[in-house]
């Protein structure tokens, strides 16, 4: 194992993961909100924010799928060392990490079952940037409307149409993160 894999984790896991979770919870509860997180320095190409989410939410019980450029030895080793999460194919993943294009087709990710819709994947979509602009969001967590620079509209509309089935998303860029739960309605207007 590359010794770099040992670095870049939380220095104080209980407190740093608590703060990171609160940011993630706020982001998913209020789609369109962009939060800044810190504390992880993962190997490229994983962003700080995606690294923070991995350290906070993943462990040996959560299979992880790395898509495209993210499926590289340095990142595989880093995730394995810090979380013990098994690295798996897309269909088995609890968490899937990669750029939007690399995650396609997103229909292959678990969307839960009609009696257990929680048994669904969470996508961590790595973005070149994030802004409260672009696609219009509505639904739970949003008072009237919100905007978020999503990479697509059709896929998220299709995901919403299957509610309560569906995947949930975090979008990450540098140290920023935003959330898009399956309940959100996305429009390109």
């Amino acid at each position: 194992m590359n010794s770099d894999a040992l670095l870049g984790g939380f220095a104080d896991t209980p407190v740093q993961s608590a703060r990171a979770f609160r940011a993630a919870l706020d982001a998913l509860s209020r789609p369109g909100t962009i939060r800044v997180v810190e504390g992880a320095t993962p190997p490229a190409p994983l962003s700080t924010a995606a690294g923070v989410l991995v350290l906070t939410l993943c462990d040996g019980t959560t299979p992880v799928h790395l898509a495209g450029a993210h499926d590289c030895p340095a990142l595989r080793q880093w995730i394995t060392f810090h979380t013990s999460a098994p690295l798996v194919d897309a269909a088995q993943a609890t968490f899937a990490i990669g750029g939007w294009d690399a995650l396609q087709p997103v229909a292959r990710f678990a969307s839960g079952t009609p009696d257990y819709p929680d048994r669904s994947a969470t996508l961590i979509i790595e973005m070149p940037g994030l802004a409260a602009a672009g696609m219009r969001l509505s639904g739970p967590g949003i008072q009237s409307k919100a905007r978020l620079s999503l990479p697509d509209v059709t896929a998220f509309k299709a995901n919403r149409a299957r509610f309560p089935l569906g995947f949930d998303c975090f979008l990450t860029a540098g140290s920023q993160l935003a959330g898009l739960p399956r309940a959100s309605r996305v429009e390109d207007i």
């Binding site: 509860s29 929680d118 967590g141 399956r182």
Partner: peptide, 11 residues
């Protein structure tokens, strides 16, 4: 925490 996030996603 994972359960809470799924709860938020499916109100």
């Amino acid at each position: 925490r994972r359960a809470i996030l799924k709860g938020v996603a499916v109100p």
